[in-house]
């Protein structure tokens, strides 16, 4: 498990109040929305704020948002590709 992915999981749990969940319960490749963790549009906003607050990264378009927020792995890749990881 890479350090950034682990850190992201912990931040997601805190930001979304997933108190019943442990980082190990989150599959880095699984979709965060609908089928996977079952997150919704408000969670998408919370994750967008998280990326901007913690990593200084802004998602520019809704299409980019869909790709970046697909999974923990895609979020980590977005952070790394912007040299913030």
């Amino acid at each position: 498990m890479e350090q950034l992915e682990q850190k992201l999981k912990e931040e997601i749990i805190t930001a979304l109040n997933l108190s019943e969940m442990k980082p190990d319960n989150i599959d880095v490749n699984a979709p965060l929305f609908v089928d996977g963790l079952g997150l919704d549009s408000i969670d998408a906003l919370e994750l967008t704020v998280l990326l901007e607050k913690k990593y200084g990264l802004r998602i520019q378009t809704s299409e980019e948002g869909k790709k970046v927020l697909y999974s923990v792995k895609s979020m980590a890749e977005f952070i790394r590709s912007n040299n913030k990881g």
């Binding site: 930001a15 408000i42 906003l45 919370e46 704020v49 901007e52 607050k53």
Partner: peptide, 9 residues
């Protein structure tokens, strides 16, 4: 800036 949506809603 950067306001979390949940408390607002």
């Amino acid at each position: 800036k950067l306001l979390n949506p949940t408390p607002f809603i």
